[in-house]
């Protein structure tokens, strides 16, 4: 396995300017410099790369579904589970095509479609970034954030002297009959 992908880049890639989590297999981008990002050592980097990308993207050429759709679904899934997060840099089209051993057109099509969906932001010259700020953020995260806000509101209402019963009825009315006049207490 270690020799499998050794020395295959074509044409040879310049050392990366940016951290590439998918290359080094660590996820320390947000914590500063990554020590794993050294393309000069293809043995360690490409192997972990292979491991990483095979964890995230597995395309099945005979599954009866176009490869670009499979890739899109897997990116969506990775974002939903938080394996890919907002601001993560995706591999370049060529790099990913080479790693998955599929045509670049497949990756390009998936990236373009994902960009249309708003899940990916293609910045000219620097790459494709996961954009999961709105809409596509994982449900669990949004519920967690909402819970925090509700908790704050409930706390302040309680501090103002409303009873739990009253607060509950207010929420219920607001959800069930949002357009009615405010209920008289």
């Amino acid at each position: 396995m270690p020799v499998l992908f050794q020395g295959l880049r074509y044409p040879p890639v310049a050392p990366p300017k940016l951290h590439r989590w998918w290359l080094c297999g660590t996820n320390r981008a947000r914590q500063g410099r990554c020590v794993g990002c050294r393309l000069d050592k293809p043995k360690s980097t490409t192997v972990s790369y292979q491991w990483y990308s095979s964890v995230i993207f597995k395309l099945n050429p005979s599954s009866g579904q176009p490869l670009y759709l499979q890739l899109m679904q897997q990116v969506r899934h990775a974002v939903a589970t938080g394996v890919l997060q907002d601001g993560d840099l995706m591999p370049g089209i060529r790099t990913l095509a080479e790693e998955l051993v599929v045509s670049h057109n497949t990756v390009a099509k998936a990236y373009t479609e994902l960009e249309h969906e708003g899940l990916l932001e293609l910045r000219h010259g620097s790459g494709a970034y996961i954009s999961a700020k709105r809409g596509v953020k994982s449900r669990a995260d949004r519920v967690r954030a909402a819970q925090q806000r509700v908790r704050e509101l409930v706390n302040s209402l309680q501090a103002e002297g409303l009873s739990n019963e009253e607060i509950f009825r207010l929420f219920e009315a607001e959800v069930l009959f949002p357009h009615d006049l405010p209920p008289r207490l």
């Binding site: 499998l4 992908f5 295959l8 880049r9 074509y10 044409p11 089209i93 060529r94 095509a97 080479e98 790693e99 998955l100 051993v101 599929v102 045509s103 670049h104 057109n105 990756v107």
Partner: peptide, 14 residues
């Protein structure tokens, strides 16, 4: 074979 296929996808992307 694997190396060759990877090479082919790489140059096509170029």
């Amino acid at each position: 074979i694997e190396e060759l296929l990877q090479m082919l996808t790489g140059i096509a992307a170029e």
